[in-house]
Amino acid sequence: MAELNSTPEKSGNKPRAKKPNLKVDLTAMVDLAFLLITFFMLTTTLSKPKAMEVNMPVGNEPSGVAESRTMTICLGKNNQAMYYLGAADKPILAATLTNYSNSGLRKAIFETRKYVKQTTGKSMIVIIKPAQSSIYENLVNALDEMKITDVQQFAIADIAPKDISLLKDKLAY
């Protein structure tokens, strides 16, 4: 049993009546503390992981998409990304190297989407191609940019040899 004892101090020469020592039983307070700790441990929720939903196509059939509305983003090394509109061998908008900042990839997506909407009247489709020299964080950043810029149609694809040669020309592979 836990106790709190205090002894009276002597003051002056007058004899005083002896008071018994003060005893406070702390057992109930310790029990209450453990009950509260247990309650809060059992009723709290841990942080839930956040995940982005990615719908993958069914089957292995290649879907034909007009090159005039397809933006390709190739993820390279040193947190750099290269983007172009159209095909790799004859792009409509030339391959340009950028970063993942607001004035980098996000601005490029907005400008390209505006160009595609003006020229074709349809929405833009984005293909993200991570290179072997890129890191996983770059892919997550590119997917975040798709969500932020509200791109409805995008895909993750394997990088083609033409894209690798473009990245090597830009010193980003």
Rank of each mutant, 00 (worst) to 15 (best):
Lys48Leu: 11
Lys48Met: 10
Pro49Ile: 04
Ala51Leu: 12
Met52Thr: 12
Met52Trp: 06
Met52Ile: 13
Val54His: 10
Asn55Lys: 15
Met56Asp: 15
Met56Pro: 13
Pro57Gln: 10
Gly59Asp: 06
Gly59Ala: 11
Asn60Ile: 11
Ser63Asn: 11
Ser63Thr: 08
Ala66Gln: 12
Ala66Ile: 13
Ala66Gly: 15
Ala66Asp: 15
Glu67Gly: 15
Glu67Cys: 10
Arg69Tyr: 02
Arg69Trp: 01
Arg69Asp: 03
Met71His: 04
Thr72Asp: 03
Thr72Lys: 03
Thr72Pro: 01
Ile73Pro: 08
Cys74Thr: 09
Cys74Ile: 12
Cys74Leu: 11
Cys74Tyr: 01
Gly76Val: 02
Gly76Phe: 00
Lys77Tyr: 00
Lys77Leu: 05
Asn79Glu: 14
Ala81Lys: 04
Ala81Arg: 03
Met82Thr: 09
Tyr83Ile: 00
Tyr84Thr: 02
Leu85Gly: 04
Leu85Asp: 03
Gly86Tyr: 02
Gly86Ser: 06
Gly86Pro: 04
Ala87Thr: 14
Ala88Arg: 07
Ala88Asp: 11
Asp89Ile: 05
Asp89Glu: 08
Asp89Asn: 10
Lys90Gly: 12
Lys90Ala: 10
Pro91Leu: 01
Pro91Thr: 04
Ile92Asp: 06
Leu93Tyr: 03
Leu93Gln: 08
Ala94Glu: 14
Ala94Ile: 12
Ala94Asp: 12
Thr96Gln: 06
Thr96Met: 02
Tyr100Phe: 13
Asn102Ser: 10
Ser103Asp: 14
Gly104Trp: 00
Gly104Asp: 00
Arg106Cys: 04
Ile109Val: 05
Ile109Glu: 00
Ile109Asp: 00
Phe110Cys: 02
Glu111Tyr: 02
Thr112Trp: 04
Arg113Met: 04
Arg113Asp: 10
Lys114Glu: 13
Lys114Ile: 07
Tyr115Gly: 05
Tyr115Gln: 14
Lys117Arg: 15
Lys117Leu: 14
Gln118Pro: 02
Thr119Met: 13
Thr120Asp: 06
Lys122Gln: 14
Ser123Glu: 15
Ile125Met: 11
Ile125Pro: 03
Ile125Glu: 07
Val126Ile: 07
Ile127Ser: 09
Ile128Asp: 03
Ile128Tyr: 05
Ile128Met: 01
Pro130Leu: 05
Ser133Asp: 08
Ile135Tyr: 11
Ile135Gly: 13
Asn141Arg: 14
Asn141Ile: 03
Ala142Arg: 00
Ala142Pro: 02
Leu143His: 04
Leu143Lys: 07
Asp144Val: 05
Glu145Gln: 12
Met146Thr: 05
Met146Pro: 04
Met146His: 06
Lys147Glu: 15
Ile148Asn: 05
Ile148Arg: 06
Thr149Leu: 08
Asp150Phe: 11
Val151Lys: 03
Gln152Arg: 09
Gln152Ala: 15
Gln153Ser: 09
Phe154Tyr: 15
Ala155Lys: 10
Ile156Arg: 07
Ala157Ser: 11
Ala157Asp: 13
Asp158Lys: 06
Ala160Ser: 13
Pro161Ala: 07
Pro161Ile: 07
Lys162Gln: 10
Asp163Val: 01
Leu167Met: 04
Leu167Cys: 05
Leu167Asn: 09
Lys168His: 07
Lys168Ala: 09
Asp169Lys: 12
Leu171His: 13
